[in-house]
Design a protein around this nucleic acid. Structure first.
Lengths: 338, 338
DNA sequence: TGGAGGTATGTTTGCGCAAACATTCGAACC
DNA sequence: GGTTCGAATGTTTGCGCAAACATACCTCCA
């Protein structure tokens, strides 16, 4: 910086003013400073800047895995929203879904150059102890329902999504709706399941036994083979699109037609869902919006203009495609071909 | 820090020594400092630390999109490898696959708290101008073949992978291999295609017309419907698993059996591939390894112990599952049922 | 017993920047 | 013409830390 100042024949402070775009610099000075910067390849040192300003203009995103659609797309949304506010995003991996690992991640976060943290916590932590979000951190929790009283929480409105799926199937005339749930360790899976069940109970309908998958198409396929043996099963709501894909294949392999014999609804609306056979009716999650809200909430805390608790739910949207239809006249399905 | 020093009755320097784990601090002093840190909730300020040390212990990862399997898994590999070296990872989104956007991203990178940059550049930039990697940056380029003479490049050995796929099909007895390529803007797609073609030419075989998809299952499906009309087509090599999935469905819809009538090979080995119907024979890319090598190369530059040019290729592995088999006795396939 | 050589700790200093305050200078007004 | 005011620019200072150097004190040996 001093070199630039010397070359441009101004003080270092003026260089600082130019590089921060302050207005009270006369145009000619400004230009000569810019020229000097260019010539010397000057770049402001962000460490010094952060030290002086007391903030990094960066937020940390804590996540256990990047291998689920939801996490990745939420991350994309966060990155986009943060970039729009001129904030950088630093990734903080959590080694395992355990209390200790999360605590360790926060320790790292404390030493990292971040002003606040978005924790994508889609799974229950192993223990029942209170969530280990240390005090003094500006934290927003995504995809979880824990800690709503200690930090802001942003989540998809899982319950409304599950209800819209069940409702859609019931409105088509199905007598009840089966459910392929996600793993019990997942908050989202639990809430989708609870809402599905509540909806059936509220309508006084029989609640078929829950089938628990693990989010993978393979688990959906295996469950689908079992459901194909159940003549009363004419409508299935799967807790994510991948398991729904497994169901579609299982039904196909079992000689059942979708949607004529069985209707299937998924959850997520992954990009591939419209290319499934048949194109999948599913519940769309707005991950981009979740990312945007996370950033908004977390910057609200940084700037002390936003709340430090409370839950924000992002609405879902039922996308009706070709995997759902009214059941046959009898309300039961035709015999399997296979 | 001063507060901690006062509480522990030592100098600030000793606090610094403790927090950096230096050895020459007697155990009793060390413990009392740690206790004081605990009590005051002290966390070292990483801005000041970075300012003093002249490095951030962070690397930037520049990417155009996070919505492809490859990029996400490469990113995961980078994050894991960086964490192992105690480096943080900051995401630098590139707005569009254009020269200007990349230049802009580098400008941001220069102002960000990163010591070096890994650029995941899987697509050609719009223009033919030389790649806009500005001088003075420590850069490693992933998934590209540009710039190998200016920066280290890490990439999957696309050619070897494509050859292994073609070879596998030819060894099974197929007369030739059709190819569903990725978009022309993709380096990887181009290299897989070239290697496939070269392999056929080297064996003096007929080279069927290339089918260009856009990586999506839908494009694979559409191409598959066309290929189903080609009786001579008994073996297809798709440039990624998603398009292979589309092929599988198209052949199924057309009444062709895989692998009895047509063999299909994919590329990537996505987690779902083993659950496709039938389980997909594919070429596995080792994204984790790519991430690790990117980190290794980039830290080599930071520490001035590694090369600043050169290309590192990561080998692929052919994973044989159930979507490939020898052609029928006649070398042509049985008539379509549909 | 004097000093050499070590270990543990303290003191000084400056990293690069920007806030706060100081200075300069020209224009506007009475 | 003198005074006031404000815009443009300069000077000083300290953010929190760790390298470099300084000091204190202990042990060991001739």
């Amino acid at each position: 910086m001093a070199d630039v100042a010397r070359l441009a024949n101004v003080s270092a402070q003026t260089v600082s003013r130019v590089s921060n775009g302050e207005s009270s610099v006369v145009e000619s000075t400004r230009l000569s400073v810019l020229r000097a910067m260019e010539e010397l390849g000057y770049r402001p040192n962000s460490a010094a800047r952060a030290l002086k300003r007391g903030e990094f203009r960066a937020i940390g995103v804590m996540t256990f895995t990047l291998s689920t659609t939801g996490n990745v797309r939420t991350l994309e949304g966060i990155v986009a929203a943060a970039a729009a506010q001129d904030y950088a995003v630093t990734l903080i991996p959590v080694g395992a879904p355990s209390q200790d690992a999360v605590r360790g991640a926060f320790t790292r976060a404390g030493e990292l150059a971040v002003d606040a943290v978005v924790a994508i916590m889609e799974t229950h932590l192993a223990s029942d102890a209170p969530p280990p979000y240390p005090p003094g951190f500006k934290v927003v929790v995504a995809d979880s329902d824990d800690a709503g009283d200690r930090h802001p929480v942003v989540d998809t409105d899982q319950a409304a999504g599950a209800v819209s799926a069940a409702q859609h199937l019931l409105d088509l005339g199905h007598r009840t709706v089966w459910h392929v749930a996600g793993p019990e360790s997942s908050y989202a899976a639990q809430r989708r399941r609870d809402a599905w069940q509540a909806q059936l109970v509220a309508r006084g309908l029989e609640v078929p036994p829950v089938q628990h998958g693990d989010w993978t198409p393979r688990s959906g396929y295996e469950i689908g083979l079992r459901l194909a043996e159940e003549p009363s099963c004419t409508a299935v709501f799967a807790a994510n699109d991948q398991m729904a894909l497994g169901l579609l294949r299982a039904f196909h392999d079992s000689g059942l037609r979708v949607p004529e014999d069985v209707s299937v609804v998924g959850f997520d609306d992954v990009p591939e869902a419209e290319s499934y056979i048949p194109p999948l009716t599913t519940v769309r999650q707005d991950f981009e919006q979740i990312g945007r809200l996370c950033v908004e909430q977390v910057l609200g805390q940084v700037r002390r203009t936003g709340p430090t608790t409370g839950t924000t739910l992002v609405p879902t949207q039922l996308v009706v495609r070709s995997s759902t239809a009214a059941p046959g006249r009898t309300g039961a399905r035709r015999p399997r071909r296979a």
